[in-house]
């Protein structure tokens, strides 16, 4: 398993290379709204939302080891709270609470974090299987209640969000949403990176590997679970708020649908669970598969997703990241040998 061990000095070179690639990708993304069609911009925006969903779910499931099946609830609630603030009358709220778009989006994310903060101490009394099913049930309860509260959510028909960020004829609302989503995605990736590389990330990994052992060594499991849950829910909520204000339409059945949980899970499994780059690579692959496959085998996309995650988790549990790493590190270690 030589590829798992990092030689001293190699890490710095690899990090530099990765940073370089990341900078190039960001530069390319900045040009996207001006160089491609609106629909392609929308597609890449969806990809960025996928990254936010995947990175945030991976923090909770991959690093802290808490398999939540309720991620969609936080995505959807973020979207709804932000929509209530930008379009209060459609949700039955007084006009006076209306806020500009950017603060509304942030409050959407914060609302999801707050929900996580309140239910966390309760739901984390559950572990393992019970936690997974408990979060699935929680998301189902939230969806059913929101669907029933027509006054707040528009019920099954949903409602249109009123927001316009366009700058004259030059930059459309969609383009502005693209840049906001890009900024939010970079923030998600950087903040998550700092967390998992820091002492908090170490604590999360410790409870993931062996909760009892970590606990007996003075690591408080609840503290790290809560940390991961709240941060993860914030980014999921922010992603939902951004996506809702890009599509300008919101509906409990689609915005809170279990599909968003499935997306997050598939992205992380494809990319490599518990690895930092995994969800980012996974989002790219998933976006390609989702669109490529729906053209070839239309109607079977869910089944293909199901087959893919089964194959990956059994035969390639480290995902795309594991594959690439194996290949790259083998290549570099070959050159190292040649130098000596």
């Amino acid at each position: 398993m030589a590829f798992l061990e990092k030689a001293p000095g190699e890490s710095l070179a690899t990090d530099r290379r990765v940073l370089g690639i990341a900078a190039l990708v960001v530069l390319w993304l900045i040009t996207v709204p001006f160089t491609t069609t609106d629909s392609l911009t929308g597609l890449i925006l969806t990809g960025l939302v996928f990254i936010m969903l995947g990175v945030s779910w991976n923090l909770l499931a991959g690093y802290a080891g808490q398999i939540s099946l309720g991620h969609a609830a936080f995505f959807g609630m973020g979207a709804f709270v932000a929509a209530w603030l930008t379009t209060p009358t459609a949700g039955g709220f007084p006009e006076s609470i209306q806020l500009p778009l950017v603060p509304a989006l942030l409050i959407g994310g914060l609302a999801s974090a707050l929900i996580a903060l309140v239910i966390g101490p309760v739901i984390f009394r559950l572990t393992g299987h019970y936690f997974a099913i408990g979060t699935l049930a929680l998301a189902a309860v939230i969806e059913l209640i929101m669907l029933d509260r027509r006054d707040l959510t528009g019920g099954a028909t949903g409602y249109y969000i009123q927001a316009d960020l366009s700058l004259g004829e030059v930059v459309s609302h969609g383009d502005m949403m693209f840049y906001l989503t890009l900024v939010a995605t970079i923030a998600t990736v950087v903040i998550t990176y700092l967390i998992v590389r820091g002492p908090t990330g170490l604590g999360m990994k410790a409870i993931h590997d062996d909760e009892d052992a970590a606990s007996s060594l003075g690591v408080n499991p609840l503290k790290y679970k809560m940390y991961a849950f709240v941060v993860s829910s914030f980014f999921a909520g922010l992603a939902g708020a951004l996506y809702g204000h890009y599509t300008l339409y919101i509906n409990p059945q689609s915005t809170l649908a279990v599909t968003w949980t499935i997306d997050a899970l598939v992205i992380v499994i494809l990319g490599g669970m518990g690895t930092f780059a995994g969800p980012i690579l996974g989002s790219g692959l998933y976006l390609l598969l989702d669109n490529g496959l729906s053209a070839i085998v239309s109607g079977y996309s869910e089944a293909v997703e199901g087959i893919l995650i089964i194959i990956f988790i059994i035969y390639l549990p480290t995902g795309l990241y594991g594959l690439i790493k194996q290949y790259v590190v083998e290549e570099t270690s070959d050159t190292d040998v040649a130098h000596e």
Binding site: A61, I67, L69, G128, H129, A132, I262, L265, I269, M273, G299, Y300, S301, E302, A303, E305, G306, I307, L308, I309, I310, I313, I314, P317
Partner: peptide
């Protein structure tokens, strides 16, 4: 362990629903 069976069966659920 926990993760792998859960994810395999989640995948199966998606396949059955789609079919």
């Amino acid at each position: 362990g926990l993760e792998q069976p859960i994810i395999v069966l989640f995948g199966l659920a998606l396949i059955l629903q789609n079919l």
